[in-house]
């Protein structure tokens, strides 16, 4: 294995500078006594100077909507707040490659949208590995790798995966609710990604039916 050309076994420091990981259980990543130290933790190891560090930490905390939480102790936070702190740490460090394991599992709808929006913006300059069981979070991905039993079984576009019922079934993947409704209605699941589009397609079909009668 190589990360940006470096071997993690012999050059872990070089790898850590370039690759940031967000763990599935946010508690596993929180280490410091206060939220702000936790967010700064990754930066401290990068040798960033004090001033810049302070600015980047403040910016990241603001970005995840946790202003005012700087001096809170991480263990007193709610599940979603912990996940936001962990994400802020990653944003502050700003590695070239972000590996995220179920980054929105504890977030509400608004939080999920914010995080996905931020990841979308980061794509221009970063590589993102986003592991999730929620396929709706991957609709805009460049590629989806399907793993099963430790093997890479497929490397496809979201549109391909969403319309391949067999591939989904074999790997016990479940389409998002909107796409499942579309599929059962005989409409194209890959194109009808939002409730609004699905509703329009249903209405269009009803109108066509009425016209034919």
């Amino acid at each position: 294995m190589r990360v940006a050309g470096y071997d993690p076994a012999t050059e872990p420091y070089e790898v850590r500078k370039r690759l940031g990981i967000l763990f599935q259980n946010p508690e596993n990543g929180l280490v410091a006594p206060f939220v702000e130290d936790d967010v700064a933790f990754g930066l401290e190891n990068l040798g960033v100077d004090r001033e810049e560090m302070r600015a980047r930490v403040a910016e990241a905390i603001e970005a995840v909507g946790l202003s005012g939480y700087e001096r809170r102790e991480p263990h007193t936070l709610s599940g979603g707040e912990k996940q936001r702190v962990a994400l802020a740490g990653l944003l502050a460090a700003g590695p070239e490659i972000l590996a995220l394991d179920e980054p929105t599992s504890m977030l509400d709808a608004a939080g999920r949208r914010e995080v996905l929006g931020r990841l979308q913006a980061l794509r221009a300059t970063r590589t993102i590995l986003h592991a999730t069981h929620h396929l709706e979070e991957l609709v805009d991905a460049d590629r989806i790798l399907v793993l099963n039993g430790g093997n890479l079984v497929s490397d496809v576009t979201p549109a391909r995966l969403f319309s391949d019922a067999e591939l989904l079934r074999e790997n016990r993947l479940v389409l998002p609710t909107v796409q499942r409704l579309a599929l059962e209605l005989g409409l194209s699941p890959a194109e009808l990604r939002t409730p609004e589009r699905l509703a329009r397609a249903v209405l269009a079909r009803a109108a066509r039916g009425a016209g034919a009668r």
């Binding site: 509400d108 609710t177 409730p195 329009r200």
Partner: peptide
């Protein structure tokens, strides 16, 4: 207000219908 499942959102998006 962000507090409805996808099924309900779809039905609401039907508007008049």
């Amino acid at each position: 207000e962000d507090l409805a499942p996808a099924t309900v959102q779809t039905v609401v998006a039907l508007g008049e219908a």
